[in-house]
Design a protein around this nucleic acid. Structure first.
Lengths: 292, 292
DNA sequence: ACGTCTGTTTCCATTTTGAAAACAACTGGT
DNA sequence: ACCAGTTGTTTTCAAAATGGAAACAGACGT
């Protein structure tokens, strides 16, 4: 017995109230309907319909089964559509949260590629470094850099790892005392990032308390200040990579031990994750892998 | 393809991660598993699993389908159990609301039979004539006598019909003026039932305003007062049948037009009605039919 | 490079299926 | 009261699908 088809036939039979009409509607013989429904009843060990020669009516068991069968069939159809839609070009809106600095640099290039690959997806990107609750604010996706695994209510996919560099403008280094050990930083103008969890302690080797004339909640702003030769900063690799390569900035204490962070893509651990979110994450993983 | 079995195999496969192990567990050959899952994928038009020679892993589509498939299978199982449990001896508790007078007479005999037939069902019977909200108070079943169809949020099954009689004790009739027309009632001591919707107008022929020295919210109480020869009452048939037959009471105005009420069994129109409620209603219908 | 373990495919006997026809049961009209 | 017309069930048998064994192909570990 094909139970699923038997159930479908039973539902149709309950709707049309006639074996003959079901057979006609499905272009098959009534013997098929009769046999299959009988087999279903046999399988259940329960009579679902009272048959007379004139009409077919549901038993109480049949009524209960009908309701449930309808729901099951609807869900099956939904499940089928789900996987089939996944094959389609995804469409719809993706609301995304990302740290400012990252969003301006790496992610802007990444999302440019993404938009080219999925022209039917609308992006709604919110850059900011404050802690936000993804679910509460209705975000489909968020980016977080962290050393430890992660929060709990979210699924996190590691995308890439990056380090930090202590950077300064060559001009600043010329005009100030040389920096050869971590402790030398104490007497320099070290900029502080407001949201940095260590506050005024930079995690170099065993850690060093720093101080300076700038405290700002934007690493981008800090970077311009550094480029202007005003002081030193602990800057994420992806932000200073270019400036270091071009000589616009110089690295200080390249051999000091510095933290490494992992960039995660986070999405709410909902019951059913929308197809376009899964597609997007696949794209993210592939993209960062390609960047290596 | 037997889609249902294919889905079951797919779920098992996702759990065990190996075609071979699924085949072993089900005492079948791996070719069956392979073929059936392939057919499912073909039917969906989607690849559910990545196969390598070393292991089997879900695609994203597969992950989504797996979640949904699990739910569907669980629901199917629940549906099957539902109809099968319906065949079993019902058990559990039934909370029932009924009018006081009816509960004391007809229903007490009915439920005695019911309890004998279904010894595993616990009855929690609340008799009272106040309007109660079945759902709010957690009743599985209620009884209402009414002339019109019914409320809306409930499913109602008509059980039986019954009429009313104007009754008095022979002693009362001897000691008072004879009653030959409906209007004669105006000068008699007519008892009033508090919950009666017509209040002090008895629905005899075109209706007649009555008055008397007793107004009570229990027809049983009223009946004893009538039996004591204190006055007249409009009494439901099922309450006075015995007393009329034995001569303890006499009927007045037997030919006046009186209302006929239908007794309904009501149950909340919930999504899924518990099996024992349906069983009970079946019993009710059969019982009242037998009483005819 | 080989052996071994994976999943897939092929082959064919077996089982299951399905349409048509015969059948049985009941209804409704006359 | 009967008969004709429908209804669902059963039978029949050819066609289709299924399932197990074995051959096959690919990937990993040694």
């Amino acid at each position: 017995m094909n139970k699923l088809r038997a159930i479908q036939l039973f539902v149709r039979l309950a709707e049309l109230g006639s074996f003959t009409r079901v057979a006609e509607q499905l272009n098959t013989s009534k013997s098929v309907i009769s046999k299959e429904v009988s087999r279903l009843e046999e399988d259940l060990g329960v009579r679902l319909l009272h048959r007379t020669t004139r009409n077919v009516q549901l038993t109480h068991a049949g009524e209960g089964y009908l309701q449930r069968a309808r729901e099951i069939l609807a869900q099956l159809e939904a499940a089928d559509s789900f996987v089939q839609d996944l094959q389609q070009v995804p469409r719809g809106r993706l609301k995304i949260n990302a740290p400012m600095a990252l969003g301006i640099t790496e992610l802007s290039r990444m999302f440019a590629d993404f938009m080219r690959a999925y022209p039917d997806i609308e992006l709604d990107i919110h850059l900011g470094d404050e802690d936000v609750d993804l679910v509460e604010q209705g975000f489909d996706l968020g980016f977080r850099a962290s050393s430890q695994p992660l929060d709990l209510a979210y699924v996190g996919r590691p995308l890439t790892r990056f380090g930090y560099h202590v950077c300064a403008a060559p001009q600043y280094l010329q005009q100030h005392e040389p920096i050869v050990s971590v402790d030398d930083l104490r007497s320099h103008n070290c900029f502080e990032y407001s949201y940095f969890k260590g506050r005024n302690v930079w995690p170099l080797d065993e850690g060093v308390s720093i101080g300076g004339t700038l405290r700002v909640n934007s690493v981008i702003f800090m970077l311009s200040a550094i480029k202007s030769g005003l002081g030193l900063g602990l800057v994420p690799e992806f932000l200073c990579r270019e400036a270091l390569a071009s000589g616009e900035l110089a690295e200080v204490l390249p051999n000091a031990r510095k933290p490494e962070l992992t960039l995660y893509a986070l999405y709410p651990a909902r019951h059913f994750v929308p197809a376009r979110v899964l597609q997007c994450i696949d794209f993210l993983e592939a993209w960062f892998l390609r960047q290596r």
